[in-house]
Computed example of a mutant assay.
Amino acid sequence: MTAVVLVHGIAQQVRGPESLLDDWYPALADGLALHGVTPPDRAAVSMAFYGDVFRPPGHRGVGLPELTADDVTDPVERDLLLAWWEHAAEQQPAVPGPRDPGARLRTPHVVQRALDALSHSAFFAGLSERLMIASLRQVRRYLTEPATRDAVRQRLAALVTAETRVVVAHSLGTVVAYETLAAARPEWRDIALVTLGSPLAIRNVVFDRLLPAPTDGRAHWPASVSRWTNIADRGDVVALVKTLAPRFGDRVTDLPVHNGAQAHDVRPYLTARETGQAVAAGLTRR
């Protein structure tokens, strides 16, 4: 029985379901333990892995294909990058903002300026320029390539059964989880959805491209979901809009947490008492 299904986020293309579960399961168990609940056996927890959908074919170069600021030409990628930059600058003094005079003088190329600035942020520190651009491309490809979107959603749909009680999703995985659970199946019912560091409510880039399409600025409630808890760290650059209830309905419970320096990292999200409480409520409701 798969009681809990986990859905990862971007930049996991060289991992796999078991290696990711090795990272996620102990943190999930810790969060439940903080709430006084015995975690389910690992055999009852599955990882909806889709990273390989974004894994490029082999090529003569080493590592990722060479990507530079000049390759960021798609409006979705550019808008998301600039939104990340602006939010990171608001939250972190070390990140020069879009209107910072020094940032403007260093380079006239706005995309390059954004990449340079984000390299000083807590989330993107240590990531190469290529990795940042590759992350942008994964979001863009999911939102704009129907075949990619379908392939990713099928990975989650294949694991959700009538016995599934909780879906826990992180980052881009929250978009995958929302869209998949919105496509109701008769056997899917009474599922508790827990979203961590979600970009779902980012207007223009993500929200307005959701399926099913929002109506009059409001998204449709995912029919398979009975309760939804959204958890976000104030400094999480990816979760630009921290509260989902204004767009997805008052049935969403929005909770803030503090994850320390790695605001978007899934592990502190999972170990948070708030996450443990939300998962426990889903596991024990029947």
Rank of each mutant, 00 (worst) to 15 (best):
G9I: 00
I10K: 01
I10F: 00
I10C: 03
Q12E: 15
E18I: 10
E18C: 11
S19N: 13
W24A: 06
W24Y: 14
G31F: 05
L32H: 05
D41G: 12
R42N: 10
R42L: 08
A44Y: 11
A48P: 02
A48L: 01
R60L: 15
V62W: 10
E66T: 13
D70A: 13
D71L: 03
T73E: 08
D74E: 11
V76L: 10
E77V: 07
L80R: 01
L81M: 09
A83E: 11
E86W: 12
E86I: 13
P96G: 12
P96N: 14
P98C: 07
R104S: 06
R106P: 03
H109N: 15
Q112E: 15
A114T: 08
D116W: 13
D116L: 13
D116V: 09
A117D: 09
A125V: 09
G126M: 03
L127H: 15
L127C: 14
L131H: 12
L131Q: 15
L136P: 12
Q138L: 08
Q138H: 09
R140E: 03
R140S: 02
T144K: 07
P146N: 05
A147G: 07
R149D: 01
D150H: 12
A151K: 02
V152T: 02
R153C: 05
L156A: 00
A158C: 07
A162L: 07
A162V: 10
V166E: 01
V168W: 00
A169L: 09
A177Q: 05
A177M: 06
A183I: 06
A183R: 12
R185F: 07
D190I: 03
L193F: 04
G197E: 03
L200A: 03
D208E: 06
D208V: 04
R209P: 04
R209Q: 14
G217S: 07
R218A: 15
P222M: 00
P222Y: 01
A223H: 12
S224M: 08
W228M: 05
N230G: 11
R234Q: 11
G235R: 10
A239G: 08
A239P: 06
L240P: 02
L240C: 01
F248W: 11
V252H: 01
A263C: 09
D265C: 02
Y269P: 00
T275S: 10
G276T: 02
Q277L: 14
A278T: 06
L283T: 04
T284N: 14
R285G: 14
